[in-house]
Each structure stands twice: as C-alpha cells, then as structure tokens.
Amino acid sequence: MSCIETIQSYALRSLGFGERLLPRSDFTLCEQFTLIGSGMIWNVYFGVCALLTGFFFATALALAKASPRRVVRKPAEWFIFIFRGSPLFIQFFFAYFLFLSLKGVSPLFTHFTAAWLGALIVLFLNTAAYSAEIFYGALQSIPKGDTEAADAYGMSGWPRFRRIIWPTMLRLAWPAYTNEAIFLFHATTLVFFSGFPAWQQRGDALYYASYFADKTFNPFVPYPILAGYFILLTLVIIGLFGAVNQRLNRHLPSNTRPRLKFRMNLIR
C-alpha cells in the first residue's frame, strides 16, 4: 500500500470512516503518522469545545468567587477547590461510572457514557475551574484607578463590567490563560485511558501511539511522532492566543505590552 492510499484509508479512521481494521503487522512510518494524526482530531475536538464553553463558565465562576455575598462565593470556592484539588484522571473515572449508573436510572443519559459527550463535560468543568482561578487572580489585580475611572464616568452594573472590568481582567489573565489552554490540550490525551471506551477503536492520538508501541514493542517511533504533533498544536495555540493578546493590549504603547511567556506543561 502506498502512502497516499494509507492516508486515504486511515486519515479519518478515528471518526469511523475508511478502513475498519487497524494495521496489524509490518507497520510503516506512514501508517503511524497517519493514524496518530487522525487521532489528533479528537484531541482538537475536546480541547476546542471545552475551552470555548469553559471560558464563559469560568468568567461566571471568577465573578462568583470575588463576590462579597457568602451564598454566591462559597459554592464557587468549593467548585474550584474540588476540580483543582483532585486529579483529572480520577475525575474522568468517577464521571464515567457516575454516568454509567445514571444510565440505568434514565435513558436520558445514554450518550453521556460515550467519550464525545461524557469526557467533554468533565473537561469543560475542569478547565472552567482552572481558568476561574486565573480570572479570579486577574480580577483581584485590576488597577484601582480603572474602576474609579468607571465610577467617575457614572458607569455601573453591566456597562461597567462589559467595558472596564471584563477587558482588563482578560488582558491581565491572558498569558496565564494561554498556558491553561496548552495544558488542557495535553490533558485531553487522558480521556481514552480512563474508563471511557474507544468504541470500534476510534481513539485519540495517544490511544493510537500506545497501540503502535504495544504492537511493535518499540516506543521510540510512535511517541516522538505524538510529541511532534503536540508541539505543532502548541505552536498553533500560541499563535492564536498571541494574536488575541495583541488585540487585547492594542491601546498600550508597543514596548509596555506584556509578552506571552510560555511555560511548558505539567500534569493536572
């Protein structure tokens, strides 16, 4: 099979299109690149969806945590503590078995045991908690002068939040939030190792990489390929978030703009 044919039959394998059987012997480099790349679709899907939805929830959580009212503050504090204080890996397991039990109660939960929804919910809650802590820190360090200026203009409530507090919060939080986004994409590799079944062997990049490593008993090819894909993905994220960072800071003179400082990943 030539490399073009391999790409044709395996490029969308992780979504269930193309060849049904995974290669079983005589693994070529092309097959490994194609399948692991195909798995990246899932990593991107989980990361993008969780980030987009988690962003709004995180903003709400951060505001709740900064609220002077106890009834609002305490639940937000507990939520953030629970999701930041326990391993994501255990959260995945717990959520999967929780959904499995709920499935027995009501047919409403049928889809929750599948990775595309169940794992996404866990990632959404998890990234919301981590981002909320970042946003909360940024809220605390908004310069007093900014809010005083808003008061002086007679702004209050929604316009004050929308035009002064929120943009400043984002501006201050953005470098840390970029790192959070990178961690989140790396954390998506845990999904198929934590209970959620890879139905019909439709898995993510790490799932296929470990498949090849198990079959060939040679970790030196698939894992570097995986690392390469992730470095590419990380560069794309940095590019996109850097562009947003520039837009958020466009009113500042160019030499005082905070630069994105890139810290590498840690397990969560």
């Binding site: 590799t189 790490l206 990489a209 690392a227």
Partner: peptide, 12 residues
C-alpha cells in the same frame, strides 16, 4: 523533559 507532553513521557 519539559517540552514533551507529560503522559506520553510516562508511557514512553
């Protein structure tokens, strides 16, 4: 070590 995705590093 810091540049490679973490879980992959463990498995590797």
């Amino acid at each position: 070590v810091r540049g490679v995705p973490d879980i992959a590093f463990f498995l590797f």
